[in-house]
Write a protein that binds this DNA or RNA. Structure first.
Length: 876
RNA sequence: GCCGGAGUGGCGGAAUCGGCAGACGCACAGGUUUCAAAAACCUGCGCCCUCACGGGCGUGCGGGUUCAAGUCCCGCCUCCGGCACCA
């Protein structure tokens, strides 16, 4: 009969501890004013980007970031912090609704089911979330406050209705915001989009452009992410300049003025034509009869081109002359340089700047290409000294364009203004001053950032708290919030740019304050509405009087660590910053920025196999043959590549399968061990058992193989003195893990713990209970279930999840003796054992002895000592 | 085209401030154990020359600075991400 074994079995210990933690409310965060709140404790807010609960369930990419924040949260608790580590659901929006349409089920139903799946999956992974703070953006108790915040924006004049052209996506049946459209196609689904004028709600994020830009600087975000936001905001400083249209009408009418934006007002001397975008409102009135049909044809052609075509043909310039001339204010009207033609061309974008430019072919590549193509004058304006003689000559002659900072030539003067000899900065200032004095322009700052298109023609979103009455827009009073969605059997988009809510006739028809008939707004808010403030609700999730008490947000904000993917670089992260600033301006939140430290995790990829033609062969059609992977049918040897996980390639890893086979602790540990959190790296199923073995070894340090030998090894039943060598090793491990968590280098922290376990295994019977308890403490953030089990078996006081971080004795981190490398001419030729902290001459003497053979017959001209590391002899 | 980031053994990766390249894990090879296998444990494992001792080469490529370079500088190549006619 087999003896009862007690091998490491995650399937029994993991649910046991998960249940225990939950029953004892171990991870509850304490708000100011709550019983048990300790004002002396530092706070720490660790936040994950909450998931869309998709039907596919959890992907292995989710637990990567979630494990990282969980490690930091558990570690911060051990360090004595009051930690807020919450989780919730981004449940409104397109993905949820698209799935509901596909499965022909109501989105409320599919969302509830998907949330249940996600929650079950996350809970199996042992994350230390305070589940009592769980929120869902689709919950009326939540979106009541999304609507309330929207009213605050409206009251500040930051929400307005607009009829400007917006991105319309026919396939999705809705309009989309700028960040949801990439190269003229929808981010979700890759469907073509087009510009259409439609009445929409818009949020005036542009009012905050400057603050969104300048207040980005001090944040602890990656430089690349800050750059993405900076470029999206797209600040340009320059001038707006007015050009009068010439010979247009009888002189009793004041002439039309064309306003252009330029970042280089200093090049006004070289402006030899103007270009308006084809959609510019002045085109109609300035076009001469002779050019009318050519202009109309060009406008029509430009309008029918999709955004994609327009940008695809980026470099090939097209355009048409309007027949009109404008006056370059620097020159006399009868001077040929003062009379410049006005063209239209689609390389000028109507939505940026003023939709019109002054073309300076000598100073701008696009204008240069355009001038060349249409044989327009290219007046030289520079007197360059780039050191490249032939190039200088071409630039001076206006035969090559130049955007460098080089001095201007003698052409740059008229009666009242000269910038000859000046450079870019001084020239700009001087020209702007002149324009202001002449009433022809002024300094101007322009942003690429557009206002946030905030309405969607979809069912599954927050209704706007707005009525359309005879007198215009009326806000729904606070006490009537939330405005809930009517239940609709048929919630599909209608194929016309009208929300499906238009069919909820009884819901739409209502009464205004005065009791007169009114209609509810039929558009709904975008998916990003709920996620723009969820980090605030987590601070005070059950508050029924406020969206979040000021005391709670003042205490918890800003988020100390926010982890998620880069896909939200400009959407969610910009919107959240905007809303936080608005709430700050309303005096409702003290923080000006929501997320102090932001960390972008890399993508978890997978191996796939490519045939000779470069086509990926699905996993099921491959087989292993020795060290190679070959095509199962043809036997062709395949090339391994790293790519996204994809159903088509058959290389998607389901976290549930990994948990079933190895346990949650192994999944957590493997994802952290794969490599640096910020890097993208491939999942390798062969590596998973490696970290699992490490956990088994840790288990065996404590637990005997057979149950009859007791719950712990015999020598661990009582406390006893610590072995000095192991003690040293342990202190180093604690110190290393501590520093590595701090810098989010989880892979090397795990390597350090592996080294300890390897060493400890060799000296198994010299281990003490106390040492192993402290090892369990450092393991706890990474593999919390196993660590908690070991802690219990080792007689740890109370719960490990609440135990403080073990202390490190700095004295134990240094050795009495150190081995140093001895180099001759920079090459390692030997080693020497020297007392730690010894004088340089002691080290040199020992080093000389170690490499005596290499020094023989040579003269040492220099001795370099790096204390505790190496000695290098420079010889001749 | 512009702006970021990266390139290290058969593979994932380590080297935190210019100081011993390849920690740790995987794969692989040999061994112990076993009737056998699995598991576990031990040993080896960058490349080349050598029975060995030892030596040479080596962090994408070419140059430079330095006693010393994966790390700093200059010039390229490749890959990944972002932006892209934004005046």
């Amino acid at each position: 009969m087999a003896e009862p074994k007690q091998t490491y079995d995650p399937a029994t210990i993991e649910p046991k501890w998960q249940q225990f933690w939950q029953e004892h409310r171990v991870f509850r965060a304490v708000n100011p004013g709550d019983p048990g709140f300790d004002p002396k404790q530092p706070k720490f807010y660790a936040l994950d980007m909450f998931p869309y609960p998709s039907a596919a369930g959890l992907h292995v990419g989710h637990p990567e970031g979630y494990t990282a924040t969980d490690i930091v949260s558990r570690w911060k608790r051990a360090k004595g912090c009051n930690v807020l580590h919450p989780m919730g659901w981004d449940a409104f929006g397109l993905p949820a609704e698209q799935y509901a349409i596909q499965t022909n089920t109501h989105p409320a139903e599919t969302t509830a089911a998907n949330v249940a799946t996600f929650k079950r999956q996350l809970q199996r992974l042992g994350f230390s979330y305070d589940w009592e703070r769980e929120i869902s953006t689709a919950d009326p108790k939540y979106f009541r406050w999304t609507q309330w915040i929207w009213k605050q924006l409206h009251q500040r004049g930051l929400a307005y209705e607009s009829n400007a052209p917006v991105w319309w996506c026919e396939a999705l049946g809705t309009v989309l915001a700028n960040d949801e459209v990439i190269n003229g196609k929808s981010e979700r689904g890759d469907h073509p989009c087009e510009r259409r004028p439609l009445r929409q709600w818009v949020l005036k994020i542009t009012d905050y452009a400057e603050r969104l830009l300048s207040e980005l600087e001090p944040l602890d975000w990656s430089e690349s992410l800050k750059t993405m936001q900076r470029e999206w905001i797209g600040k340009s400083e320059g001038a707006e300049i007015e050009f009068e249209v010439m010979d247009q009408r009888p002189s009793l009418f004041p002439p039309e003025r064309i306003r252009v934006f330029t970042t280089r007002p200093d090049t006004l001397f070289g402006a030899s034509f103007l270009v308006l975008s084809p959609e510019h409102p002045l085109v109609e009135s300035i076009t001469t009869p002779g050019q009318r049909s050519a202009v109309r044809n060009y406008q029509k052609a430009a309008a029918s081109k999709s955004e994609l075509e327009r940008t695809d043909l980026a470099k090939d310039k097209t355009g048409v002359w309007t027949g009109a001339y404008a006056h370059n204010p620097l020159f006399a009207a009868n001077d040929p340089k003062g009379r410049i033609p006005v063209w239209i061309a689609d390389y000028v974008i109507v939505t940026y700047g003023t939709g019109a430019i002054m073309a300076v072919p000598a100073g701008d590549e696009r204008d240069f290409a355009f001038a060349r193509k249409f044989s327009l004058p290219i007046p030289g304006i520079f007197a360059p000294q780039t050191g490249d003689g032939p190039r200088d000559a071409r630039i001076a002659a206006g035969e090559e364009c130049c955007s460098d900072d080089v001095p201007f030539g003698a052409q740059n003067q008229n009666g009242s203004l000269t910038i000859a000899g000046l450079g870019m900065a001084a020239g700009k200032r001087k020209v702007i001053d002149w324009l202001v004095a002449e009433g022809r322009g002024q300094a101007k700052v322009t942003y690429k950032l557009r206002d946030w298109l905030f309405s969607r023609q979809r069912y599954w979103g927050e209704p706007f708290p707005v009525l359309h009455t005879q007198d215009g827009v009326e806000l729904v009073p606070d006490e009537q919030l939330p405005v809930t969605l009517p239940y609709m059997e048929d919630f599909k988009p209608g194929g016309v740019p009208e929300s499906p809510l238009i069919r909820a006739v009884d819901w739409v028809a209502t009464k205004d304050k005065k009791g007169r008939p009114a209609q509810r707004e039929i558009n709904t808010m975008p998916g990003a509405a709920g996620s723009s403030w969820y980090f605030l609700r987590f601070c005070d999730p059950h508050n029924e009087r406020e969206f979040c008490s000021k005391a709670a947000s003042d205490y918890w904000l800003p988020v100390d660590l926010y982890v998620g993917g880069t896909e939200h670089a400009v959407g969610h992260l910009l919107y959240s910053r905007f809303w936080t600033k608005v709430l700050h301006d309303q005096g409702l939140v003290r923080a000006k920025e929501p997320f102090h430290k932001l960390y972008n995790q890399g993508m978890i990829q997978a191996f796939a196999y490519e045939d000779a033609r470069g086509a990926v062969v699905p996993k099921k059609d491959t087989k292993e043959q020795g060290d190679d992977v070959v095509h199962a049918a043809t036997g062709e040897k395949l090339k391994p590549i790293v790519t996204k996980m994809s159903k088509r390639y058959g290389n998607v890893v389901n976290p549930d399968d990994v948990v079933a086979e190895y346990g949650a602790d192994t999944l957590r540990l493997y994802e952290m061990y794969m490599g640096p959190l910020a890097d993208s790296k491939p999942w390798n199923p062969k590596d998973v058992p490696g970290v699992h073995r490490f956990l088994q070894r840790a288990w065996r340090l404590v637990v005997p193989e057979f149950a009859e030998k007791g719950t712990v090894h015999e020598w661990l039943r009582q406390d006893r003195a610590c072995d000095a060598e192991i003690e040293k090793q342990l202190h180093r491990t604690i110190h290393k893990v501590d520093g590595d968590i701090e810098r989010m280098a989880f892979n090397t922290a795990i390597a350090a713990m592996m080294i300890f376990v390897n060493e400890a295994t060799k000296a198994m019977e010299r281990l003490s209970r106390g040492q192993l308890r402290r090892f369990a403490q450092v393991l706890q953030p990474f593999a919390p279930h196993l660590a908690e089990e070991l802690w219990e078996r080792l007689g740890g006081q109370g719960l490990l999840a609440r135990a403080p971080w073990p202390a490190v004795d700095p004295k134990l981190l240094v050795d009495d003796e150190v081995e140093i490398a001895v180099q001759v001419l920079g090459k390692v030729r030997g080693r020497a054992l020297v007392p730690n902290g010894c004088a340089n001459d002691v080290a040199i003497a020992a080093a000389r002895a170690a490499v005596a053979a290499h020094l023989e017959g040579k003269t040492v001209v220099k001795e370099i000592v790096v204390p505790g590391k190496l000695v290098n002899f420079v010889v001749r």
